[in-house]
Amino acid sequence: MAAAAQPSEKSDGLVFHPMDQFIVQPLFGSGPIHWYTVTNVTLWMGLSVVALVLVMLVGTSKRALVPGRAQSIGELAYGFVHKMVEDVAGRDAVPYFPYIMTLFMFIVLSNFLGLLPMSFTTTSHIAVTAVMAIAVFLAVTVLGFVKNGVGFFSLFWISSAPLALRPALALIEIISYFVRPVSHSIRLAGNMMAGHAVIKVFAAFAGVALISPLSVVAITAMYALETLVSFIQAYVFAILTCVYLKDALHPHH
């Protein structure tokens, strides 16, 4: 988090570099970043896998009848997502539960790891969230046509509306359907990026002795908010995936 204090050619008092924390850089040496280069993205995604192994594998390895703390967390996560899939997308969506669980666990662990000082928040990048959102969009669309055939178009043809309104509504529904991956991905990346950038701006203000106490209070408050946002955005991403899945399985309103 030292980016803000780094010397710059225009270093006259306050220096703001709130976006430097999002720079992708190679872990070893320097040079151009190819698709296979081991970068800080690799490191922090790898750490999310390590965290996942700790919570979901090591924690549950005892298979205790009365769970300990670690096992409780694993079971809580399982029960939380499983119930969400069942309640939102319906009972026949349960086979897709591992996919939604994968997305939820990756996002929630990456968000929380990103809250560590000096860390790199992988989910703050639109490239990351867009891949997940587009994957969800494509999977749900393909699934909708596979399960319902042409009947999937009834998602856009609202039979409960007056006939005259239906073409207009269909246009709106189609536009909103294709906007889904955009809002789905930008919501997560934007939330994560904005919160982290704001914390970094407050941190830059801490360089002024007079403002620094206020700055520390503001950072603490923002950190608390970001902790909440980290979970809520993972939840929102997962629950929207469930809603889209429900539309694919039951397109009739």
Binding site: A3, T42, A127
Partner: peptide, 22 residues
């Protein structure tokens, strides 16, 4: 000086790397 120009999120050079590791 090693600082980001604009939003690092929009830097096309890094996206392939991020997508691959994701």
């Amino acid at each position: 000086y090693g600082s980001a120009i604009g939003m690092p999120q929009l830097c096309g050079d890094w996206m392939a790397n991020q997508i691959f590791w994701l």
